[in-house]
Design a binder for these strands. Structure first.
Length: 452
RNA sequence: GGCGGGUUGGCGGAGAGGUUACGCAGCGGAUUGCAAAUCCGUGAAGACCGGUUCGAUUCCGGUACCCGCCUCCA
C-alpha cells in the first residue's frame, strides 16, 4: 500500500488507482530553450524514483508516466530571435541535452514525452469546448478562461480570486472580464510561430498544453499529477480549471504531488549570486550523475533541499563503499523495509537508512537490488568508480619501502609515499598481510606519485 | 499585503505520543612502525512561549526567524 501526501486535499492518502492495478502519472516537464539547471532536475529525480517504485509494486507494464516538453513558449521565441536560429533547431537541440543530462542522473525515460506542438489540434478542441460550456470567451484575437465561472478556482493552491486581486500584481488587460482571467490562446504576429484557429492565427497559452496532452494520453482522470511547488500557482491551478471545466466528467488528477525547491549552499540559486549551475556544469566538474542523484535522494521531496559540495563529497564516499561491497554480486531480493519506506510518501531518506543497514550487515545482494530500486548502483552508472589505473605497482613499491623500513627503523620514505598516495585520494591499508591500495573519495590518478 | 512550506544532536537528515533512527564527524579501546580500514564501546537534539496528556521533540494555539509562490527567471 503506497501512501502519498496529496497537496490538493492536504492529506496523507492511500494510492488507490482509478483503474485497479494500473497507475497513470503526469509530470510537468521543461520548457526547452536552454540546459536544465539543477533545480529542474529535482522533480525529474523525485518522480523517477516514484515511477520506479510504482513499477516495482504494480508491474512494469502497468504504469504509464507522461512528461511533456513545452516547445512553444515566448522564452523560446526570444531565444530564436536573439540567436537567429530556427525554433525547431533550438527545441530539438535542447531536448537532446535534456535527455543526455537526465539519463546521466539515472532517470528512466517516461512512457510518453509529448511535445506541445504535436498537440495543437487537441488544445484548440479543448478551448472550443470551454467556450461552448461558457467557461471561456474570445476577445481581440485572444481566448481567455473566465475564472469566475469555476467556483473551485484557487482550491488547489489555497487562494481565493478575491484575495489574489487584493494582492493586485496582476496584469489587467482591457479585454479581460476579470483581472485573474488567463490566456488560453493568443494571436501571433507573422514573425512568431502560429497555427490557424477559429480565432485567427495564434498560439496556445502556457497552461492548456498539459490539460490537452494529459487527456489525450491518460484520459480525463488519472492518478497522480506532479511538479515543482512553484508550479502550483498559477500553472496547476489553471490546468485544474481548464480540465475540470472541459471534461464531461468534471474531474482531473486525483493526487497532486509537489516537490519543494532547491537551494545552493543555503541560498536561492540565481545567476546574480554566482551559484547557478546546470546539471551539465556539475557533470563537467566531475560530479558523477549517480552522486548527484544520491544527494537529491537524501532529502525528502517535500522539503527544501540544499545542494552543497560537502554533501556531494559524502555521497561519493558512500557510493564508493557500496560499489566496492557489491562488486561482482548479483542483485537479490529488494528489501521489504526499503519498499516500506518509499511507500510512505516516498521517504527516500528512510530508504537510504535501510541501505546503510544492509551494507552494515554485509548483504551485498540485498543492497544491490534495493539500491537499484532507487536508481543507484546501476551497472551502467558505475564507470566513475571503476579503477582505470592499476595501483598494484604502487602497492609493490610501498611494500618494498616498508619492508626495508621495518629493518632500518627509518620510516620517512614510507611515510612520504603514503602521504603522496593519500593526497591523490588513495586509501592506504597496511597490515601484516601486506599493502592494499584502494581509490577513495576524491581519487585523482593525475595526482599519483611518480614511481621510482 | 495574500497564500504555502520550514526550524531536530558538530554537520546532514528520518520515523514514532512513552523504548537506539541512520550517515558523516567526535571521543575511548582493540589493531597498526605511525596511520588508514575494520571491530567493540560512547557522549550529543528537537527555535521560543503556552495548552492537551500520567507523559510531547512527536498533537493544538501563539511568537520569532528563514524560504518559496503571487512577477520573466523552477
Amino acid at each position: 500500500m503506497i501512501r502519498l501526501w496529496n497537496t490538493r486535499t492536504r492529506q496523507d492518502e492511500a494510492l488507490q488507482p482509478l483503474q485497479p492495478g494500473k497507475v497513470r502519472m503526469y509530470v510537468c516537464g521543461p520548457t526547452v530553450y536552454d540546459r536544465a539547471h539543477i533545480g529542474n532536475a529535482r522533480p525529474v529525480v523525485v518522480f523517477d524514483t516514484l515511477f520506479r517504485l510504482l513499477r516495482h509494486v504494480y508491474g512494469l507494464e502497468n504504469v504509464t508516466y507522461v512528461r511533456n516538453f513545452t516547445d512553444v513558449d515566448d522564452k523560446i521565441n526570444a531565444r530564436a530571435a536573439e540567436t537567429r536560429r530556427p525554433i525547431r533547431a533550438i527545441t530539438d537541440e535542447t531536448i537532446g541535452w535534456y535527455h543526455a543530462d537526465m539519463d546521466a542522473l539515472g532517470a528512466l525515460r517516461p512512457t510518453h514525452e509529448p511535445r506541445a506542438t504535436d498537440y495543437i489540434g487537441p488544445m484548440i478542441a479543448m478551448i472550443e469546448a470551454l467556450i461552448a460550456r461558457g467557461h471561456a470567451y474570445a476577445a481581440e484575437g485572444h481566448v481567455l478562461f473566465d475564472v469566475r465561472s469555476f467556483p473551485a478556482y484557487g482550491a488547489l493552491s489555497g487562494r481565493s480570486v478575491d484575495d489574489m486581486i487584493a494582492g493586485a500584481r496582476v496584469e489587467v488587460a482591457p479585454y479581460k472580464r476579470d483581472p485573474m482571467d488567463f490566456v488560453l490562446w493568443k494571436p501571433s504576429s507573422d514573425d512568431l510561430p502560429g497555427w490557424d484557429s477559429p480565432w485567427g492565427r495564434g498560439r496556445p497559452g502556457w497552461h492548456i498544453e498539459c490539460s490537452a496532452m494529459s487527456r489525450e494520453l491518460l484520459g480525463e482522470t488519472f492518478d497522480i499529477h506532479g511538479g515543482g511547488i512553484d508550479l502550483q500557482f498559477p500553472h496547476h491551478e489553471n490546468e485544474v480549471a481548464q480540465s475540470c471545466c472541459a471534461n464531461p466528467s468534471g474531474k482531473f488528477a486525483n493526487i497532486w504531488m509537489h516537490n519543494e525547491m532547491l537551494q545552493v549552499e543555503g541560498k536561492k540559486m540565481s545567476k546574480s549570486l554566482g551559484n547557478f549551475f546546470t546539471v551539465r556544469d556539475l557533470l563537467d566538474q566531475g560530479y558523477p550523475g549517480e552522486v548527484i542523484r544520491l544527494v537529491y535522494l537524501q532529502t525528502h521531496y517535500a522539503k527544501p533541499m540544499d545542494w552543497t559540495a560537502e554533501k556531494a563529497a559524502q555521497a561519493e564516499a558512500t557510493l564508493r563503499k557500496w560499489r566496492m561491497l557489491t562488486a561482482g554480486a548479483a542483485p537479490g531480493a529488494v528489501a521489504e523495509a526499503v519498499v516500506a519506506a518509499l511507500s510512505q510518501d516516498l521517504n527516500t531518506a528512510g530508504a537510504l537508512a535501510e541501505l546503510h543497514r544492509l551494507a552494515g550487515a554485509g548483504d551485498a545482494a540485498g543492497l544491490l537490488a534495493s539500491a537499484q530500486l532507487l536508481g543507484l548502483l546501476e551497472p551502467e552508472m558505475g564507470a566513475w568508480a571503476e579503477v582505470t589505473i592499476d595501483l598494484a605497482p604502487y602497492a609493490a613499491q610501498l611494500g618494498a619501502l616498508r619492508d626495508k623500513a621495518m629493518e632500518s627503523k627509518d620510516f620517512s620514505a614510507v611515510d612520504a609515499m603514503k602521504s603522496a598516495l593519500m593526497a591523490a585520494g588513495v586509501e592506504v591499508r597496511m597490515s601484516k598481510a601486506g599493502v592494499e591500495l584502494l581509490p577513495a573519495a576524491g581519487f585523482d590518478p593525475a595526482k599519483l606519485p611518480v614511481l621510482a
